[in-house]
């Protein structure tokens, strides 16, 4: 009898549930495919190679920002400053590139400094939240105000253009394939490597049960700080993509993106309470947000209704993401 009593949770698990448990991002993938199909129905042209590449290069920044957010959410934290880190790195690299003449060397050097800046911001967040033990929501909101101030100091008004070589490369082609394609491949490889590192597991362990993680000997504070460092790093990468896409600096460009990044993480089936999630889900979640606005546009929604329909659709898929994510958890 006891054996039967202990095993039914496994017995009852159907094929779908096992599949969901192994690939928790499947619901997000399904939503993306449905949205792609809808796009195709309303405007067959939108599924062309060219349009899809355009969609990807527009939403690559949000994808990266959502991935940045995922690593802190893994540990049960949140980063409301991710968008302002993106803005800060965006204006910093644009101003540096311009000052240094806009050659290839200047671009690369500016990008390196941009990465360091992202890491520095992540470190500040990590210290404030994990080491000083302030509440993540309010503390990262405070740092976001600070980072925005810094971005405004570097570039008070939007408009400084990025060097031609930079945005031509981002929007252009390499060996016959669009450049964003290489970014995507590079990103997938990077994510695959990261997901196999100890850090990803440790972040999830901390998010699942901080006390238990501490008692097994994990350096909880250091791990949470590393989560914020990863977040800063990916926010900087997101800034590179937005700079490539908009070809200019704007100290407020990322402000609206923070909450979208949180939404994308939830859409991807990750739990905001931490301990459960996938970066692939967040990638698909960010694509979902992009595809929703494109479907709303192609459906011929009157322009004043577009934001409302988009907001409603995002709310619905958010709920779906939460419900599916809960179903998937072991």
């Amino acid at each position: 009898m006891t054996e039967i009593a202990t095993s039914p949770t496994y017995r009852r698990a159907g094929g779908l549930r096992i599949l969901l448990e192994r690939y928790p991002f499947l619901p997000a993938l399904a939503i993306v495919l449905v949205l792609l199909a809808l796009n195709g129905v309303f405007s067959p042209n939108s599924l062309s190679y060219r349009s899809l590449t355009g969609l990807l290069s527009t939403y690559m920044a949000l994808i990266l920002l959502a991935i940045a957010q995922t690593y802190v959410v893994y540990a049960g934290d949140i980063d409301l400053s991710a968008g302002s880190i993106l803005s800060l790195v965006n204006v910093a690299i644009v101003v540096l590139m311009e000052r240094w003449g806009g050659g290839a060397g200047a671009v690369l050097l500016a990008l390196a400094i941009g990465l360091l800046l992202g890491l520095a911001c992540g470190l500040v967040n990590g210290l404030v939240v994990a080491a000083l033990r302030l509440q993540a929501i309010v503390a990262t909101f405070a740092t976001s105000i600070f980072f925005t101030g810094l971005a405004l100091y570097i570039l008070p008004v939007a408009g400084t253009p990025a060097p031609t070589i930079f945005w031509r490369t981002y929007g252009g082609r390499l060996l016959g394939l669009p450049f964003v394609f290489y970014i995507l491949v590079g990103l997938v490889v990077l994510l695959a490597v990261l997901s196999r590192t100890r850090l990803a597991t440790q972040l999830l362990a901390v998010g699942d049960d901080q006390q238990a993680a501490y008692q097994t000997g994990l350096p909880v504070v250091a791990i949470r700080i590393r989560g914020y460092l990863l977040c800063g790093l990916f926010s900087a990468l997101a800034a590179f993509c937005i700079t490539g896409d908009t070809a200019s600096g704007d100290p407020l460009v990322g402000g609206k993106m923070t909450l979208f990044s949180v939404a994308a993480v939830v859409l991807g089936g990750s739990a905001l309470s931490g301990g459960w999630g996938t970066v692939v889900g967040s990638l698909l979640g960010a694509l979902t947000i992009g595809l929703i606005s494109s479907v709303v546009f192609f459906m011929g929604t009157p322009s004043e209704w577009q934001n409302f329909v988009q907001g409603l659709a995002i709310l619905v898929v958010l709920m779906a993401g939460v419900l599916a994510g809960r179903r998937a958890r072991p």
């Binding site: 405070a142 740092t143 105000i145 600070f146 925005t148 101030g149 971005a151 405004l152 100091y153 008070p156």
Partner: peptide, 10 residues
């Protein structure tokens, strides 16, 4: 400046 104000506020 607005930038300094925001930094001090944060």
């Amino acid at each position: 400046d607005e930038s300094g104000r925001q930094m001090v506020f944060g």
